[in-house]
């Protein structure tokens, strides 16, 4: 049985008209409109069953409503892939293709794909969420861009692994994975060395990415009034590890009440971190979580108060995504408790 595809296009490629119809809301049509015909002809063992059309301005100004309507259209349909565009360098169209592809992928878990030009603002917005083929800047590149989408879409339909970004022609999604290649590391090393010596061009296998920076938070105005919370990635937990935090590649965190404690006692708390020798921290957990000196400084009035809970997880092998998720789970609790500042101790 052949598989089924649904295509998303804007008002222009949906043959409703130009800029004057950019405000029309979403509609779904059985059969093939605009690029859907070429997709239908080129997709392998797959029929395009429907074309969805939405005006770029409508999607741009009412994205939630437009997405809800389209997901509603799709709710009772069977389809194996969802394709949007190509959007070339049309900014609103590109953002629309990205928006709807991401929503469809999140809701239905089917493969989605689109195409746009590198200058299209939709590319940077969505390249980490969906596969966006590198496309031309103007609609005259339709044949080429559509063929590129089809090539990868056919792999998705066949259940094959989609290869690396540079080889398949899509924008990198921010993921790096290992792949097996013909040449061994010695050969590659020697070639890179010779190129450096000769002053010739070479391509490093690791290009250092631009680092994500956050604005520096304003300092606490009055330390003597501040409520300070203590956090750690050093895996300090009650000895029975009640939250079953993993000792490496952690996905869990814990919140532990220290009311009335002057220090963290050995035998009551320990570290479950697998990345270092735990002896010192098990003998005296305060070497990672300095509750003892914080209590002393709290009494001396150096700062306002120590927050009633400390938060703990394990930092080793933990992905940035997991770390950021855990932080986002902890954050509202800190905010609800009016925490003014944090100390994070890492091992």
């Amino acid at each position: 049985m052949s598989k089924k595809a649904i295509i998303y296009v804007n008002q222009f490629f949906g043959q409703l008209g130009g800029e004057d119809t950019a405000g029309v809301g979403p509609s779904i049509h059985e059969g093939l409109i605009g690029p859907a015909m070429a997709y239908n002809a080129q997709l392998k063992d797959c029929d395009v069953t429907h074309t969805i059309i939405c005006g770029d301005n409508y999607m741009g100004s009412n994205p939630e409503d437009a997405v809800a309507q389209i997901l509603g259209f799709l709710e009772n349909l069977e389809f194996d892939i969802f394709i949007a565009g190509p959007a070339f360098n049309a900014g609103r169209y590109g953002v629309a293709c990205g928006t709807i592809c991401k929503a469809v992928k999140d809701r239905f878990g089917v493969p989605v794909i689109t195409s746009m030009n590198q200058e299209n603002p939709g590319m940077e917005m969505f390249r980490k969420d969906i596969i966006i083929m590198k496309g031309g800047n103007i609609a005259s590149k339709m044949r080429k861009d559509l063929a590129a989408v089809v090539k990868v879409a056919n792999k998705m339909l066949a259940g094959e692994q989609v290869g690396p970004a540079a080889e398949e022609g899509y924008f990198p999604t921010g993921r790096r994975h290992q792949v097996f290649i013909e040449e061994d590391a010695t050969t590659r090393f020697m070639r890179m060395l010779h190129a450096r010596i000769a002053g010739e061009e070479f391509v490093s296998e690791l290009i250092v990415p631009k680092l994500d920076r956050v604005p520096i938070a304003a300092p606490v105005k009055d330390l003597k009034q501040a409520k300070v919370a203590l956090l750690t990635t050093g895996g300090i937990v009650p000895v029975d590890n009640p939250d079953r935090i993993q000792s490496a590649s952690a996905t869990r965190w814990g919140k532990y009440d220290i009311t009335g404690m002057e220090r963290l006692e050995s035998g009551v708390f320990k570290t479950i971190h697998a990345g270092f020798d735990p002896a010192a921290a098990n003998a005296d957990p305060n070497v990672i979580m300095p509750i003892d000196v914080l209590r002393a400084m709290e009494k001396e009035g150096v700062f306002g108060s120590l927050h009633q809970y400390f938060y703990s997880t394990v930092g080793t092998g933990t992905t940035e995504k997991e770390a950021s998720r855990m932080a986002k789970e902890i954050l509202p609790l800190l905010q609800a408790d009016n925490v003014d500042a944090c100390i994070m101790v890492s091992t």
Binding site: V214, I216, A217, A218, A327, L331, L334, A341, C342, M344
Partner: peptide, 8 residues
């Protein structure tokens, strides 16, 4: 945490 404006 810093992104939320809490100094850390």
């Amino acid at each position: 945490i810093e992104r939320a404006g809490i100094p850390i």
